[in-house]
């Protein structure tokens, strides 16, 4: 239900194409900087992990997510492998 006062509220700012460009760029630039800051072996490790997993289950490229985080003086490599219902059996 729309109250009468809603008519006096300014409409939300329209989603302009420049706004979309900025949001998309912020996401991709942050991601690529993360990759750049990470060690060189991450892409190769990601690829090889996928190959090993594919020996047993069918997964797509996006189902293995890897992030490397610095916490204090230790680094944490987090590997997330998502198996969907249909992918569980080869």
């Amino acid at each position: 239900m729309k109250g009468i006062f809603d008519y006096f509220r300014s409409p939300p700012p329209p989603q302009t194409s420049a706004r979309m460009a900025k949001e998309r760029l912020q996401v991709i630039v942050a991601r690529e900087r993360g990759h750049r800051a990470g060690p060189d072996y991450l892409p190769a490790l990601h690829r090889e992990l996928l190959e090993v997993i594919r020996k047993y289950v069918r997964v797509n490229d996006e189902s293995v997510q890897m992030t490397l985080e610095n916490q204090g003086d230790c680094e944490i490599l987090e590997v997330n492998i998502t198996l969907s219902e249909s992918e569980r059996q080869l």
């Binding site: 329209p14 302009t16 194409s17 420049a18 706004r19 460009a21 900025k22 760029l25 912020q26 630039v29």
Partner: peptide
């Protein structure tokens, strides 16, 4: 074009980079 929301503004680019 920036005023019309069709182009990234100076501030946008400085913020992103």
């Amino acid at each position: 074009r920036v005023d019309k929301g069709e182009m990234l503004s100076v501030e946008d680019v400085v913020e992103i980079l």
